[in-house]
């Protein structure tokens, strides 16, 4: 079953197409990455899913039905720009956010306390939001998003502004929620994170969906025959080899792209014969980062010319 189905949605601001006929659907229980460079239309798309902005065209189905007030309580939304009442006390703030999602006052208080405990923020529970650091506020905001155990969780750039420890902590919780069956839509421009977390991705550039599908398939489709090599000594002979397409040499690290149809074994043999000390030999598929740069960078270059 699809947790979310987006069909041909568009949003125009005057002549500017912020989102241009984007379609995708998300399997229940999957972690879906909405990727793209800054200003691609990710946030606009998410706001349309949350009915904060009404799409000019297209149709959105949330949890199997059109958007309604009732579905709001089953969805959690963490916007890119955080918002809390600066003068409210932490626990009261979370209680209010929980109540807004249909929890009863006591229930909201209980769940909020549990999460605060888990995020190690309990000693701040009676402090005002404005007394907290930005990172802490972000964690509070995240608690507010997940405390009503939503079926669908939409998080826009959840890791921005967090230190590595908190980033890992947040990631663990996202994965835990996924295991419990929550469908998660994650928007990010950090490709290495998306690569590690997502099952499916949709890459948006200039308001258009340029890539859409399972991460595994996309990587296969875009993978090139390339080898990463760490070495010592003189490796200039490599780029003379007949089956090498191009090299990117950093002195003791080299990325080698082979001709298509060539097996990396050939390079391995050639290296073995050369007797050059090799510290690491890795046949690699392209990273999502490479794919991103290839598609997004390539496109914009074309248009610049």
């Amino acid at each position: 079953m699809n947790a979310l189905k987006v069909e041909q949605i568009s949003k125009f601001y005057d002549d500017f197409k912020a989102v241009d006929r984007i379609s995708f659907s998300i399997q229940q229980g999957s972690l879906f990455g909405l990727l793209g460079p800054n200003g691609a239309g990710k946030t606009t798309t998410m706001r349309m899913i949350m009915n904060i902005i009404i799409p000019d065209e297209g149709k959105i189905e949330l949890l199997g039905e059109p958007f309604s007030e009732k579905t709001k309580d089953r969805v959690g939304y963490l916007p890119e720009e955080r918002g809390l009442y600066p003068k409210m006390k932490l626990l009261a703030m979370l209680q209010f956010l929980g109540e807004m999602k249909g929890l009863s006052g006591n229930q909201a208080k209980k769940v909020a306390s549990q999460w605060l405990e888990r995020f190690d923020l309990m000693q701040w529970a009676n402090n005002k939001v404005q007394d907290l650091s930005k990172g802490m506020q972000q964690k509070v905001q995240f608690i507010g998003t997940i405390m009503h155990s939503p079926d669908l969780l939409i998080v826009d750039e959840p890791f921005s502004g967090l230190d590595p420890i908190n980033t890992k902590f947040l990631k663990d919780i996202l994965l835990e929620l996924k295991q419990q069956g929550t469908t998660i839509i994650l928007s990010t421009h950090l490709m290495d994170q998306a690569e590690k977390l997502c099952d499916h991705i949709c890459l948006i550039n200039r308001g258009k969906a340029v890539l859409n599908g399972s991460l595994k398939e996309i990587k296969q489709q875009y993978s090139h025959n390339s080898v990463h090599l760490e070495y010592q000594g003189d490796a200039s002979f490599i780029k003379e080899l007949p089956f090498v397409h191009s090299v990117d040499d950093y002195g003791n690290y080299m990325e080698i792209r082979l001709d298509e149809q060539t097996n990396a074994d050939l390079l391995f043999q050639a290296l073995a014969e050369s007797k050059m000390p090799v510290k690491k030999f890795e046949v690699s598929e392209s990273s999502l980062n490479d794919i991103f740069i290839e598609i997004v960078g390539g496109k914009s270059n074309e248009e610049n010319i």
Binding site: R47, M50, I52, K72, P79, R82, G83, L97, K101
Partner: peptide, 16 residues
């Protein structure tokens, strides 16, 4: 204040 502190976006995702 709700607009500048972006709370409104969170509230709108819960209410209308």
């Amino acid at each position: 204040e709700e607009k500048t502190s972006r709370i409104v976006e969170i509230l709108l995702s819960s209410t209308n």
